[in-house]
């Protein structure tokens, strides 16, 4: 079979596959640590699972058995369960706070523990963008302060 001849079993293929898996895993870690949107955080978690799947299949290819494949099947089904439960929780969180922002839940605590804010919600830079400068003509318009302060849904 030409396909078999083309794709031989080798340590180099294992190392390349493991490297791709490691890159995907660390990208997912960066995403889940830094992003604040709950959906994007779960996408990053799925990205980490993808990295694990690639690594497992690479090992399975190297050892020449189906152990890694079987594990990836289980990873897929657990990921499906996790996605279902997680999306339900995201929907519940959204109906309570009206935001898909994880920082909105930073004061979540037990009743006996004091309230502490771990991370101040940083405010946006509300200054106007750099519009091209034209020659002034007429009087300058009065800017709408409310609109410039609440540019949430741009």
């Amino acid at each position: 079979m030409t396909f078999t001849i083309l794709f031989g079993t080798s340590l180099a293929l294992l190392q390349n596959g493991l490297m791709v898996g490691a890159i995907l895993l660390s990208l997912g870690l960066i995403g889940i640590l830094s992003r604040r949107n709950l959906i994007v955080m779960f996408l990053s978690a799925e990205l980490m699972l993808q990295g694990i799947s690639v690594s497992l299949v690479a090992w399975s290819r190297y050892h020449g058995d189906f152990g890694g494949h079987v594990l990836v099947v289980f990873v897929l089904s657990v990921a499906a369960c996790e996605a279902a439960i997680a999306l339900v929780f995201v929907l519940q969180a959204f109906t309570r706070t009206g935001r898909l922002d994880s920082t909105a839940w930073q004061t979540l605590r037990e009743a006996t523990i004091d309230r502490s804010i771990d991370h101040e919600i940083p405010s946006l830079d509300t200054s106007l963008p750099n519009f091209p400068r034209l020659t002034p003509a007429g009087r300058s318009p009065t800017p709408d302060e409310q609109a410039s302060a609440q540019r949430d849904h741009v």
């Binding site: 895993l25 870690l29 640590l33 830094s34 992003r35 935001r99 898909l100």
Partner: peptide, 26 residues
């Protein structure tokens, strides 16, 4: 559409350092 939380990240420096350390070790 976009909200403010989509345009801000939590601790981008620390999280990239954590990811880079993980990738380096791996």
């Amino acid at each position: 559409g976009l909200t403010t939380s989509d345009r801000i990240t939590n601790e981008p420096m620390l999280s990239t350092v954590a990811g880079a350390v993980l990738l380096g070790l791996l």
